[in-house]
Design a protein around this nucleic acid. Sequence first.
RNA 1: GCGGGCAUAGUUUAGUGGUAGAACUCCAGUCUUCCAAACUGGUCGUGUCGGUUCGAUUCCGACUGCCCGCACCA
Length: 517
Amino acid sequence: MLFMAELLTMETLVTLCKRRGFIFPSSEIYGGYAGFFDYGPLGVELKNNIKRAWWQDFVHGRDDIVGLDSSIIMHPRTWEASGHVAGFSDPMTDCRETKKRYRADQVFVAPVWAAEPVAGAEAQYLGLAAFMEDASDLEILKRAKTLRDSVGQKSLKILEDKLAARREFTEVTEAELASILGPDATKIGTLTPARQFKLMFETHVGALQDESAVAYLRPETAQGIFNNYKNVLDTGRVKVPFGIAQIGKAFRNEITPRNFVFRCREFEQMEIEYFIQPDADWKALHRQWIDTCIDWFVSIGLPRESIKEDVHPQEKLAHYAKACTDLSFSFPHGQQELEGIAVRGNFDLTQHQQYSGKNLEYFDEEKKEKYLPHVIEPSFGVDRAFLAVLTAAYDEDEVPNDKGVAEKRVLLRFAPKVAPYKVAVFPLLKNKPELVEKAQAIYKRLQKRWPAFWDAAGAIGRRYRRQDEIGTPWCITVDFDTIEKDGCVTIRDRDTTKQVRIHESEVVAWVAEKMGE
RNA sequence: GCGGGCAUAGUUUAGUGGUAGAACUCCAGUCUUCCAAACUGGUCGUGUCGGUUCGAUUCCGACUGCCCGCACCA
């Protein structure tokens, strides 16, 4: 078996997904639409299986987590409280010379005045030197000198005290842009005006397009959980520590959607907010959650060694976060984030309490005190989990054909619980009604319990390969022995291509046992 | 957003300023026996819009999409 993770390209996956009906580019008949994808007949099965497994393992399989399905459009104040309105729409400026992009609100400009190095010389205004907010005085002076040189005034002396009159880049006028030297540029006038990059999708609620009715498509499902935290407390008979889980679509106007379904503008999340006591041992709980999540990914078919923990360094954490660990996976485009597990303190509940004016405190019966619980937030990307499962399952090997010549075989080694079809049923030959009839009976029996695939077309080998490529674990073939002699059918295994014969009456029990049911 | 490359059937591709060709896939059929078999037949294509031209899939322009870098990713 090849170690496919090293060799597999995204293009191979994209092609397979298109060819077999897992994923199509959105709106393809209109030329496609960047950042959006559609899940086809097989894709929706795989995706649903991943979501079902998650819900089973994190909601139904636990006593301390309950589910939720909140609306995608929420009261706009939600996003003011969460910080998304302010933090999710950054003004940006690009430098045409260096091709660098800056957060405009982190760029400052200082006026550059210079004069002949003689007493009483008249000062000349040369332009504005741009620099990042953390630049030192020495660095700013260097930028000023570069600006002076670039306008052909090398002989002049910079008036250093004038540099102190700094302003934010976002405040400069259109006319001033031409005289600004970018933070890393050597020529003036290369910065574009600050442009808003709004990462939240805006819409209007109500048929009248009134500015006061602006609303947003949620950029994360988590805020729906915080929004309903009080309702769940009041009705769910839950006690801290407890969690609320939710699966749903989220939307972000990504600047550069890329890498297939890895970064999309419309995507699906599986999130949990796990509420804990403020003085709980959050480090231990965080560790526990990381392990639980890794185990879960392994249970849906990802090799443990392909999952890595990336700990966010303290200085890169959001101000309200105590810790955050990403789980990353070796995708075809590199080791990339699969899930984030953050310790968020009580920032969100504090914000919502303040913005809503509603008391969101929890009364702890045991401690006899009120507090706002802290949270641990495991945030899974459904589409990323899908891509990871697909990447892990993809394999190529060689199987001898009917002439004994080795031929390349493409297969998806899905764990049976996530496979779109669990079993396929074939009559050995299509033109023999007695074979077809018997096979149909078995197929109908299986179909009541699992997604099953019927195929009677073409050579038997071709049908096996077709199932290999969509990851069906078992194929069941009815032949003449089944109807004329022993009543046994052949069950062929996807991973080994080995066959066993069992009596047709035992087929359902056999599959159930293999499924672990 | 920037720079570079690419765009012909479901896939891989050939070709031409004058009716677009193949292989595989797919569909139908023949076949009594298990790994993309063989044979017969069939469906499906020049990303979109505009320009030049008697005529454009081909030349030109714009757009869109995809790929690779850069930047961005609360």
